[in-house]
Design a protein around this nucleic acid. Structure first.
Length: 893
RNA sequence: GGGCGCGUAGCUCAGCGGUAGAGCACUGUCUUGACAUGGCAGGGGUCACAGGUUCAAUCCCUGUCGCGCCCA
């Protein structure tokens, strides 16, 4: 006998290891079954599960479990990402606590950093940290129920994937698609590395606009006024730009200004970049520290003078007194000195966008350095074509437009990072800085020997690759590439990639680039994008806001199935954010309990499935009906999952299990199950068992734990093995006659209940049901379902009658009027009011339909079946209205 | 500034040409042998606003106003 309530904790802890050790998640590349593959978006190896993971992985697991039951050979490829910058940051922070720093160039020992680690020492610490915390997130994914093939787990820095990274780098370099270039990059002065455009987030900052006067050469009293948000960069100015048509300044074009504080002679040039309406109309040009200025400088051949070091402190290209100053200290000093010189015209408050590094959290500095780049424009061509011709599709479709917008305007991808944790770039430099890119130092040496004609010392490039470089290879590197493995042959292209909108560009786009360059096809057929989980107010969850909900706490409290069901219901929103509230998880937990108790009911009533039971042989109407409802739910769930409308699958399951099975089928079957033994009882027990068996199958992808448990408790495990490996049900036929009959029954019972409640008939009072004007069909139905009606509507005795007695509730269903004599129990005036209300409602409906049917255009232009439907509805409403009027008259008689 | 999305019941959201829905919250009532993590019944909505297309618009189109996201 099942316990009274469902206890997820104990069951989940037991079921997962059972599946895993039985090999239920294992892919079988050698099998002939069709492949179905999803690669997991690899979480950071040292991270822990957050709500985004819970959503993303629930959706993937649903698809995986569904396809597994459908008979596919599924592979859910798991693994973790080394997450270069993020992991390095965490370890650095941990070391700082111990007073340990990194021996990077320019680092000094201080009280806080008594010890400085070499690169090798630091990497050893990171691997140590990985060993310590690396199992956390995979353990948490298991708690969620994720049925990944853990025997194939990979890590972006394991041996095989590192080999793939090297090969990709070397091949792309050979093809000219990876190259070194000296151009402006986004420099993070805190992390001390270059970052890509995507890692920069612009934040709105309330700052100032400073107006500086630059003296004109040879004209001591004349000035040109420039407006800037970054006074400190003036030390690197090499020009001033004005618009060619600007009446205020155009007479100065071709002349020179003398840069204050520095004394440099800088040209005044005409450039479209200057907007006469903005600021003063004249712009100072600092080509080495601003992306726009860099372009202007290039157009006018202005020198680019880099004035910062990597910490964003002023370097020796500026007058001595400023050297070593931090950029923000320099700003204050420069503004003060300009004011002293009388060259500060004014200061205006100004709100503008400032680029921040998404990891370091400080403003990034456009910085002129040599970095490695991938030719993203070239690599984007094949992915764009694939998205255009439908080899890859997006759900929802507008993801495709976003994809195009990004891919068609893509800039070179800066792939080198000045970090220690990551894939070190396979490039070696000779004494003359000649670069040798090779798979190994030996090969590089061989190349060098060929080039120089003698052995020379080579020095390896110290930089590592952008984390997203290795994750871009994920769909094929995890399957064994560059080796031609059976798994690679079978599972590539993968079927669907499930991820959030936020990494469409970071990851999805780059997987497309690499996948299409190194493999013959797209990495995945479908990109399924979902929104971001936020708190109830729609705010992003963050530690600093203190609004983070921990999925593990929810699993502890409500169970993994409840969390999964909630996530599935949430997954519909076409909007970018999914507001999460714990109340919904509670509701999902209640849903689990409901199913648990329905099963408990079945158990208590001897529901059992005979070995050779054929549901098509069912004779009782109520059984035929529920089997039809089951088929309907089955169809709806399949359709929803096929269309990636997972929330609709959740809704269909909820409505079927709660609304159909629990609310009606269980109640309607009680008279039979609790009545005398015989074929009807046997059939109902069998159908109950059958429906529950199929239900746990249909629910399994969404709520795997409780369904596996119930499958076992229902006794199917002994004969068929675990639920996870069962074949997915195929929907049977529905029965229109049974639908109509149970529809009538449900309406009759509901109407009686409503009338009783509205008239405050005591819940315990049992009334007689008198049927007036019922036809043969109704008589037969009343006979069939009499027991159920008596039970559910609290009736005692059903009889035909010529007329209704005066003191009675009256309702109309179909052609018959039903009277429930109440004697003096109720106030007949109230009943009169109730009837009048009903009549008015129907009369309004009739009037509405009449207006439609009276419209000649409607009758002639609307489809025939729509018109017919309206006529039928009018007739029904009018008939019921007339009968209720009769009932009302009788009441007053 | 450009692009996209969203404004539906008190709250969170489904629905997206032909009878306005769910969960939670709320009201009344019931411990009837599955379940009070529950049953039964009920209240609550000019589907943001203004035009247009259509026999018919919450749904399609245009504009306005709010909110959010992405890219400059």
């Amino acid at each position: 006998m099942l316990d009274k309530t469902y206890d997820p904790k104990e069951i989940e802890a037991r079921r997962y290891p059972e599946w895993e050790s039985a090999g239920a998640f294992t892919a079988h590349p050698e099998s002939t079954r069709p492949p179905y593959c999803i690669v997991i978006p690899p979480p950071n190896v040292t991270g822990s599960l957050h709500m985004g993971h819970a959503l993303d992985n629930t959706l993937q697991d649903i698809l995986i479990r569904w396809r597994r039951m459908k008979g596919d050979d599924v592979l859910w490829q798991p693994g973790t990402d080394h997450a270069g910058i993020a992991t390095q940051m965490v370890v650095v922070r941990n070391l700082e606590q111990e007073g340990i720093g990194l021996a990077v160039e320019g680092a000094v020992k201080t009280d806080a950093n008594k010890k400085l680690l070499s690169r090798e020492e630091f990497l050893a610490k990171v691997w140590e940290w990985k060993a310590y915390s690396g199992g956390t997130i995979t353990g948490q994914l298991r708690r969620l129920g994720a049925s990944c093939d853990w025997s194939r787990e990979r890590f972006t820095m394991d041996e095989g994937l590192s080999k793939a990274v090297l090969k990709v780098f070397v091949d792309l370099h050979k093809a000219g698609l990876i190259y070194k270039d000296n151009r402006l990059v986004n420099w993070d002065p805190k992390m001390l590395t270059a970052i890509s455009d995507l890692e920069v987030e612009s934040r709105e900052v309330r700052g100032s606009l400073w107006y500086f006067k630059y003296p004109i050469e040879g004209s001591p009293d004349e000035f040109i006024t420039v407006a800037t948000t970054r006074p400190e960069t003036m030390l690197g100015d090499t020009g001033v730009a004005v618009h060619a048509d600007d009446p205020k300044w155009k007479h100065l074009i071709g002349k020179h200004a003398i840069l204050p504080l520095v004394g440099r002679r800088i040209p005044i040039v005409a450039d479209e970049y200057s907007d006469p309406e903005k600021g003063s109309g004249a712009v100072k040009i600092t080509p080495a520290h601003d992306f726009n200025d860099f372009e202007v400088g290039r157009r006018h051949k202005l020198e680019a003078i880099s004035i910062f070091d990597k910490f964003a402190r002023l370097n020796d290209k500026v007058p001595e007194k400023y050297r070593g100053l931090d950029r923000f200290d320099a700003r204050k000093k420069i503004v003060a000195e300009m004011e002293e010189l009388g060259l500060l015209d004014k200061i205006e408050p100004h709100t503008h966008q400032v680029p921040y590094g998404d990891r370091g959290g400080v403003p990034v500095e456009p910085f002129l350095t040599e970095q490695w780049y991938a030719d993203a424009k070239k690599l984007a061509e094949a992915p764009i074509a694939a998205a255009r011709d439908g080899r890859v599709t997006f759900v929802p479709e507008r993801g495709r437009d976003d994809f195009f917008r990004w891919m068609e305007n893509i800039e070179p991808w800066c792939i080198s990072r000045q970090l220690w944790w990551g894939h070190q770039i396979p490039a070696w430099y000779g004494p003359d800085k000649k670069v040798f890119v090779a798979l190994s130092e030996e090969e590089a040496k061989a190349d060098a020997l060929k080039h120089y004609g003698k052995d020379v010392a080579l020095e390896r490039d110290p930089d590592v690759l952008d984390t997203w470089f290795s994750s871009a290879l994920w769909p094929f590197s995890t399957l064994g590439w560059p080796d031609q493995t059976a798994a690679l042959a079978k599972y590539y292209p993968t079927n669907v990639l499930v991820t959030g909108w936020d990494i469409l560009f970071f990851w999805v786009a780059r997987m497309m680039m690499m996948g299409m360059h190194f493999m013959p096809d797209v990495p995945f057929r479908t990109v399924y994008l979902h929104g971001l989980v936020t708190d109830e107010k729609g705010q992003k969850m963050s530690k600093s806001k203190g609004n983070v909900v921990d999925p593990l706490e929810l699993i502890d409290k409500y169970g993994a199935d409840a969390l999964r069901f909630t996530m599935t219901s949430l997954a519909a929103s076409t909007a970018g954010r999914l507001r999460f509230s714990s109340a919904r998880v509670e509701g999902s937990r209640n849903f689990a309990t409901k199913l648990w108790n329905a099963t408990r009911f079945a158990e208590m009533n001897g529901a059992a499935l005979p070995k050779d039971f054929d549901p098509a042989s069912a004779k009782l109407i109520v059984n035929k009906w529920v089997l039809g409802e089951l088929a309907r739910a089955n169809t709806a769930i399949d359709k929803a999952l096929t269309d990636f409308r997972l929330n609709e699958a959740a809704t269909a399951l909820y409505e079927f299990i709660w609304g159909i099975v629990c609310d009606w089928y269980v109640e309607l079957s009680k008279p039979v199950l609790q009545g005398t033994d015989g074929p009807d009882k046997d059939e109902t027990r069998a159908v109950t068992a059958f429906v529950l068996r199929e239900t746990v199958k249909l629910l399994h992808p969404v709520m795997p734990f409780i369904t596996e448990e119930l499958w076992d408790k229902l006794g199917h495990r002994a004969d068929h093995g675990a639920l996870i490996g069962q074949p997915w049900p195929a929907p049977a036929a529905t029965d229109a006659a049974a639908d109509a009959e149970i529809g009538w029954l449900v309406k009759l019972i509901s109407d009686i209940r409503s009338a009783r409640a509205e008239l405050n008939v005591p819940a315990g009072a049992k009334l007689k049901l008198l049927v007036v004007g019922g036809n043969d069909v109704t008589a037969k139905r009343l006979d069939t379902h009499g027991a159920a009606i008596e039970r559910l509507a609290r009736i005692e005795g059903i009889e035909a009658a010529a007329t209704a007695p005066k003191a009675a509730l009256q309702i109309v269903v179909g052609e018959a009027t039903y009277a429930l004599p109440v004697g003096e129990v109720i106030d007949l005036k109230t009943e009169g009011v109730r009837l009048q209300k009903e009549i008015k409602k129907l009369a309004d409906e009739v009037a509405k339909i009449d207006a439609k049917l009276g419209n000649a255009a409607f009758v002639s232009r609307a489809p025939e079946e729509v018109v017919e439907e309206q006529r039928e509805r009018r007739q029904q409403a009018e008939q019921t209205r007339a009968r209720l009027s009769t009932a009302l008259e009788r009441l007053g008689a």
